[in-house]
Design a protein around this nucleic acid. Sequence first.
RNA 1: CCGCCUGUAGCUCAGCAGGAUAGAGCAACCGCCUCCUAAGCGGUAGGUCGCAGGUUCGAAUCCUGCCAGGCGGACCA
Length: 561
Amino acid sequence: MKSLIERLLGDALAALVADGTLPAGTAPAIQVERTRDPSHGDLASNVALTLARGAGMKPRDLAARICEALPADRAVERTEIAGPGFINFFLAADASTAVVAEALRAGERFGECDEGAGRKVQVEFVSANPTGPLHVGHGRGAAVGDSLCRLLRATGWEVSSEFYYNDAGQQIENLARSVQARCRGQAPGDAAWPEDGYRGDYIVEVAEAYLRCDSVAAEDRQVTGAGDPEDLEAIRDFAVAWLRHEQDLDLKAFGVDFDVYFLESSLYRSGEVDDAVKLLVDGGKTYEQDGALWLRTTDYGDDKDRVMRKADGGYTYFLPDVAYHLNKWRRGFTRVINEQGADHHSTVTRVRAGLQALEQGIPEGWPDYVLHQMVTVMRDGAEVKLSKRAGSYVTLRDLIDEVGRDATRYFLAARAPSSQLTFDIDLALSQSNDNPVYYIQYAHARVCSVHQRLAEAGLAWDREAALAHLTLLGNEEEQELLRALARYPETVARAAREAEPHAVANYLRELAGHFHTFYNAHKVLVDDPALRAARVALAEAVRQAIANGLGLLGVGAPERM
RNA sequence: CCGCCUGUAGCUCAGCAGGAUAGAGCAACCGCCUCCUAAGCGGUAGGUCGCAGGUUCGAAUCCUGCCAGGCGGACCA
């Protein structure tokens, strides 16, 4: 509908250019917006305001000329010039109800579009080190990242989701030594306890499983504990597998799955890390200093050069990161989105700089990043900081177990990633109108209940037949609901484009609100068959939008509550 | 000291590709169930959009400078 108005305005402006009212070469980006106030019509444009200066006319006069030049269209009932020079469009009744037919016919595909045109995009998210259970911050990454994947798929992109395991390096060494210490019966605080060891209770569980010679299945392998406390290599393999398994369970409980699990260690085995070094050295981008090998990242916008290979011969985390992204590029992902916590934002410049230094034709701003800010958890008005198992942080599992998957996913995805998030456990737990998850789900359940009643009463409802009666939807609440419903496809498209799933969450809250208002003001199952058919159609269209929208957030849409 | 993010109603937050009187929920107060699930609805009250300049016909939205909070600034990740 928006694009129709844009086209009409474009024709009108072309006509005015042709007759000399507007200077030649006038080709503005025409803005058409949905109005906030129904008295301003359904859609409005500010073109007259933006073009008035160039035309040497008063905005309202120009608006009048534009209106005269507008081609007639049956979807537009009338136009009005308002305020400083806005052109308001009032849609014909059958145009404003068109969205109901669209929703019912499209069904689960309502709201989808082909903006991505089948292009490939890779989304990397969570990517937690396999050194402990996932915490709330990872949960936010999982909720936002997974929802982003769903949004991109819904808008025509071919999405590949990926989890990158840092299963090599110093942190893994700490993990192995921590488990080894537990195997030997040591505890944090003991003299022999490793420096920077992991203190959580789950380390005890890993040690016990290892000593019992348990078998654990990670995504691509099966590892059996050797039972020998002195075999650090065996402990490392077992511990990593155990924690990968643990994280897989956390993600499964959260309803998140990945297309690809990528291991940092594979980059060493395949020689890709060494290849990256060779490319950088041969390209003359490096220098030796104090026994270390440095990369001139300052040539690419970084504020200081970075060490690639330490004096002890080991690589810094930065180098495998570069090799990993080169790997992504070579897999043909011209678009990559990395969703990560903002506490790692300093890597953005570094990775991009490293990729530029490779001179492999990678674009400067590649890859894209979505950074989410920190999460704090509140209960009884106080911040919750500790978990029994993990010790120093609140685990994702704790939250899912306590407030449920749907509420957890909704709350973690409902805020702009760039904003810090306060997760209020009391609110997420409340089974009342305080809780937006239930509020939205309840609207869905109410429509399902209407269908149930309809069937119980032995009343038939035929979709195509109902669509013929939609013009009966004329009262204020119905009109408001139609206006809200019409915004769904635009909301999805924009949320995907801006990588902001929270827009969907907020929209659904509003849509559900309009539905509840309508539902409370008017009976759906009235005696008049035509009106009844039309209202059921409207309710069903809303249900479809809610079900689809919740699906984009990974939240369920129950039929009864 | 430098970089990124944030500052909107008592609280949690939308709005920020400039637009017509700044929104929602919670909390407060007043109402609505012989009626499709009251996990619902209606109403009242509540804001110098951190502060100060600037650009513009028009700024919560863009620019600059301050102030406050969060995060980062390793031969850790």
